[in-house]
Design a protein around this nucleic acid. Structure first.
Length: 810
DNA sequence: GTAGGGTTAG
């Protein structure tokens, strides 16, 4: 093509010399016609022709000028297109429409509209209306498109098939209402236009899209879509595909399959749509079966097919199948690999990551000829899923092209792995770098607040996410329920749950946990019964939560009943469930029953069971069994720093100071670094965080140190301060700190000391070690010699000089 | 009109 243009440019010199202007004009026009907007090289050719015209003094006008504007517009050189447009003394309708299209295509709908508005009414036609309507629709502004469309009808312009197609796709952006769809359907039918297939397809697509909107009855809209489909005299590929994908998206795979089976020549797209539908609904074997059939029937599979089927293997943990398909793709597609590979390789990376083969995943990643953000994110979440947070962090800091999903993955990873403050920092940084957080990112940040007990911060996030319009998002709602629950605001968790448009088992689990953690065991169990009545199937986490609730409320009989009834829902108790039962029995002081349970269980008692046993022993002062459990735990997981501390604490409680010294020596020898313990508390809406170097009696020592700092003399109590602690105010962010979950009473003590009489304190975290809290309150009321009021949810508990009236709470 | 990377509950 370029040769043709160059040759003809030479020829145009001759024409120019011969002063044959008309021939010259048609030659230029022909040259510009050769410039195909799809090919980048055309742009420079068009520029060539243009400069040739300028140099030769040829006067630009009419359709040649329009064509140039069109070309510059299509290559997004709006400045030049506009320059030419402005040179026209009276731009004609074609030039105006071209400019409108050019501006819309480059996203500048405002300028497009301005040109449209400047076009006199008498000049406009249906095509120019179509241009601006399509512009709005492509720019995601459904209302703008409709507004122009209505104006068009009002001024008696006649819509054509293009108009309807654009208006229908604009409506898909806004209509979530059955009535609107049907009104539009009537308008189209009544308009008397002989509807071409593309208009009917657009209408069909409108029905199908609206049907998946949450606020609408999908079955009746899909019914209407089906009626339209059945009535259509001509159906093209798009018609069939829209109908099939519509059923897939609206969770009716059987009807989708019915149409699919009915379709005579099935395109690869429809196969893909069916497969992806099966995958998304968890019907993995159907997806794989369809993949096999495609191969047998001889349909040419494409990258959509491969990615879907690989993700089926990844989600169903069918590693062997996945590997076989990997081999199959390699054999079949060796020739095409380059273009193909990005998305397929991404799916492979995900497959290997999810199946725990981090090494292989990384190998594929390293050998990828091309990578896109998805590839990087796939590796990142591979690290996160494997619990490898350090590596994930490192990878995150080095990776190029982070997108909002990268941030979301990292924020959630930090929030869930005890780095709540890191997660919140990242959330802020994400926004500073100009990424708008999506609902999942908010969910991650809210989770971080929940884990930190940072209620004020969490509440602020709640307010912000409402402004973003995320309050009806399921994951955000679930994260908020959890956050409020962990911060002890059970009423807020409940009212949020009640206002959520959709809830799932996660929401129920979160709410039951919120109740159970805050001493409202009876209500938690009631809620569980309501969940069953609502036909939400309980899962293993539901049972963990229910057993925890029973344990906190001391409901031994209920706990046993629920534990025994797990199998009715096809759930086999895991070691964690046995651990909860052990916890329940031991807290109730039923050690022989606990022992019986442990002997009976189909596992060798591991760390969770032993920890539960140990905790019960500490509460009930069952020193022999406690020490036995601590020693076994120590043997089982000597690599865990925490077990040293547990063991030394247990010896300390039993007064076996020589053993304490022995363990501490072991710790020093092995270079075990003690993780600082921490607590936090909200006092008068301000969050205070405590850091404490855990020691033999961390709570007492830290309280002691703090009191001494205040000038109070506590030495006569007989505790020896051999440990330091750091006080930190989270809001000032002046110091590094790390958080863990124990020593709640410290924070309580700290908060109380700074309180005026009768002030309100909100205690965070669960009060499982309530016996100890109780003592801490008593202890502190003695120290400060005044009444202490503790608020937990709606209840107030009063402590006076060592006495207490804490009611049924503990 | 179809695909690949994510989230929330213990």
């Amino acid at each position: 093509m370029s040769n043709a243009v160059t040759l003809s440019l030479n020829f145009s010199h001759k024409l120019y010399e011969a002063a044959d202007i008309r021939a010259l004009a048609s030659l230029y026009a022909a040259q510009l016609q050769l410039c195909c907007p799809q090919k980048p090289i055309s742009y420079s050719l068009a520029q060539n022709v243009h400069s040739h015209m300028v140099i030769s003094g040829f006067r630009l006008r009419g359709h040649i000028l329009n064509r140039l504007i069109d070309i510059y517009g299509k290559f997004h050189n709006l400045v030049y297109a506009r320059h030419l447009f402005d040179k026209m003394p009276q731009p004609d309708l074609v030039a105006r429409t071209t400019m409108i299209t050019a501006y819309s295509a480059s996203g500048n709908i405002k300028q497009a509209r301005k040109i449209f508005d400047d076009t006199p009414l008498s000049m406009r036609d249906t095509v120019s209306y179509n241009a601006i309507i399509t512009g709005y629709s492509h720019n995601g502004d459904g209302y703008g498109a409709i507004e122009v469309f209505l104006g068009m009808l009002h001024r008696s312009f006649i819509p054509d098939n293009f108009t309807y197609t654009s208006v229908l796709s604009a409506l898909r952006l806004i209509a979530d209402d059955e009535r609107e769809c049907q009104q539009l359907h009537c308008t189209v039918v009544k308009s008397g236009t002989s509807c071409c297939t593309s208009v009917l397809n657009a209408l069909l697509s409108l029905y199908v899209t609206c049907a998946s909107s949450p606020s609408v009855s999908s079955s009746s809209l899909m019914g209407a879509a089906r009626k339209l489909f059945d009535e259509m005299s001509e159906r093209d590929e798009l018609t069939w595909t829209t109908m099939i994908t519509g059923y897939v998206r609206n969770d009716d795979l059987d009807l989708a399959r019915e149409i699919f089976d009915f379709m005579s020549e099935k395109l690869v797209v429809v196969w893909n749509a069916m497969i992806s539908g099966y995958v998304h609904h968890g019907f993995y074997s159907e997806a794989l079966e369809m993949f096999r059939r495609m191969h047998l029937v001889g349909i040419r599979q494409d990258e959509f097919t491969y990615t879907s089927v690989l993700s089926a293997c990844a989600d169903a943990a069918l590693f062997r199948h996945g590997k076989e398909i990997h081999g199959y793709i390699m054999r079949k597609e060796a020739k095409y690999s380059a273009d193909f590979s990005v998305s397929v390789n991404n799916a492979l990376v995900t497959l290997y990551s999810k199946c725990g083969k981090a090494h292989e995943a990384r190998h594929i990643f390293n050998n990828m000829p091309l990578r896109d953000p998805v590839s990087w994110n796939a590796i990142l979440s591979g690290y996160v899923n494997a619990g490898n947070i350090d590596e994930a962090r490192q990878f995150f800091s080095e990776m190029p092209g982070r997108n909002h999903l990268t941030w979301t993955v990292m924020i959630s990873a930090l929030a869930q792995n005890g780095f709540g403050e890191g997660g919140l920092k990242l959330f802020n940084q994400m926004r500073l770098e100009g990424f708008q957080p999506c609902d999942y990112a908010f969910a991650g940040a809210v989770t971080a607040c929940g884990n930190l007990g940072a209620f004020e911060h969490g509440r602020q996030l709640h307010a912000q996410l409402i402004r973003f319009g995320y309050e009806s998002s399921l994951s955000v709602g679930n994260a908020l329920i959890t956050m409020y629950g962990r911060c002890g605001i059970v009423e807020a968790a409940l009212s949020l749950f009640l206002t959520m448009p959709f809830v799932d088992s996660v929401s129920w689990n979160a709410l039951i946990a919120a109740m159970g953690q805050h001493g409202q065991g009876g209500q938690a169990l009631e809620l569980f019964e309501q969940m069953l009545e609502a036909d939400i199937l309980p899962d293993r986490i539901t049972y963990l939560t229910v057993l925890t609730a029973c344990s906190h409320a001391g409901l031994v009989k209920h706990g046993r009943h629920y534990f025994d009834s797990m199998h009715t829902y096809g759930i086999t108790p895991g070691e964690d469930h046995y651990a909860r039962m052990t916890d329940l029995l031991c807290r109730a002081g039923m050690f022989s029953e606990a022992k019986e349970l442990i002997d009976k269980m189909p596992f060798v008692p591991g760390a969770p069971v032993l920890e539960a046993l140990l905790a019960g022993c500490r509460i009930h002062g069952n020193l022999d069994l406690g020490i036995q459990a601590a020693e076994e735990l120590f043997k089982l997981v000597p690599q865990h720093d925490g077990t040293y501390i547990l063991l030394s604490n247990m010896y300390a409680t039993a007064g076996r100071w020589e053993d304490v010294a022995r363990v501490r020596k072991l710790m020093r020898d092995k270079g075990v670094k003690k993780e600082p313990g921490c607590s936090w508390i909200e006092v008068e809406n301000k969050v205070h965080v405590f850091l404490v170097d855990d020691a033999v009696h961390p709570e007492v020592l830290a309280v002691y140190n703090y009191l001494e700092q205040l000038g109070l003399r506590m030495r006569e109590l007989g505790y020896v301060p051999d440990t330091k602690y750091v006080l930190h105010d989270m809001e000032s962010e002046q110091k590094e700190y790390s958080l863990s979950t124990h020593s709640e009473k410290l924070a309580v003590a700290y908060g109380l000391l700074k309180l005026p009489r009768g002030a309100t304190v909100r205690v965070f975290k669960n009060l499982r070690i309530c016996g100890d809290c109780h003592n801490a309150f008593k202890f502190m009321s003695k120290v400060v010699q005044r009444e202490i009021v503790v608020r937990d949810g709606k209840r107030f508990h009063h402590f006076r000089d060592g006495d207490c009236s804490c009611g049924d709470y503990w």
